[in-house]
Design a protein around this nucleic acid. Structure first.
Length: 245
RNA sequence: AGUGCAACAGGA
């Protein structure tokens, strides 16, 4: 099982999903029982190849063969359907998972929250954030970044800023993504001086800023007509070795 | 052996 699973995953991640699937069939033919790990890989890679229906079929096939899913498989499957924009199905998977007695972990919440936020349902995501905390589930870097993004998208930039501060005291130093999200949130509501201060703070901490963060600031300054400042930021970006895209 | 995060434009 381990040998075949490695092979199936290796081929799948290279986009050779049909070859991967053939080895999966061979694994079954040789009498090795399928497991949640190989199904996780197949589901993810069928979706990655745009073979959505086949991805769903794999999940059904798993249930038919009485192979028990686990939290990782549910997380993966949920992420796949959410990336397709199917929030309804994503929530259904979340409910099914809980209904079967699985306890959502920090990734489960992060994945579903991210899907909801992307679909413009930040208020639903906030409910999950509360549920996650109520469950006693500790936030990690990804969960913080997703939540920060959700607050920014729903006009609660101050809450986003608070979370950035919370990260510092809870032993999760904010990354370029955390700073980038708050900087973008501030810039989008024209709070450019505050955005710029955070930008300076991130630089002072030695965080390697990237084109995304610079673009947020350039867009913010440009949008309100502060073209000179936008231009200076772009020059600084190029001087730090980043090419405009 | 398998899972999660950020910007802008073309585009009304």
């Amino acid at each position: 099982s381990f040998t075949y699973t490695s092979l199936v995953h290796g081929l799948g991640r290279q986009g050779k999903i049909d070859e991967a699937y053939r080895f999966f069939e061979r694994m079954l033919d040789e009498g090795h029982p399928p497991n949640a790990v190989v199904y996780t890989s197949l589901i993810k890679n069928f979706f990655m190849c745009g073979r959505i229906d086949d991805g769903h079929k794999i999940f059904k096939d798993m249930t038919r063969r009485q192979c028990k899913p686990d939290v990782t498989l549910y997380n993966t499957y949920m992420n796949c359907v959410l990336k397709e924009g199917d929030v309804k199905k994503g929530s259904e998977i979340f409910e099914e998972m809980k209904g079967c007695g699985y306890v959502p972990d920090v990734r489960t919440y992060s994945i579903l929250m991210n899907g909801l936020i992307k679909a413009g349902e930040a208020q639903e995501a906030y409910k999950l954030y509360c549920a996650m905390k109520e469950q006693g589930c500790e936030l990690d870097i990804h969960a913080y970044n997703i939540t920060i993004h959700g607050f920014c998208k729903s006009g609660k930039v101050n809450k986003a800023y608070q979370l950035l501060e919370e990260m510092k005291v809870k032993g999760h130093p904010p990354t370029v993504i955390s700073y980038g999200a708050v900087i973008d949130g501030l810039a989008k509501v024209d709070r450019l001086d505050e955005a710029y201060m955070l930008f300076e703070e991130a630089k002072a901490k030695g965080i390697a800023l990237n084109v995304v963060v610079y673009s947020s600031l350039i867009d913010g300054f440009g949008k309100v007509g502060r073209i000179d400042e936008a231009y200076l930021i772009m020059e600084e970006m190029m001087q730090s070795g980043l090419n405009p895209n």
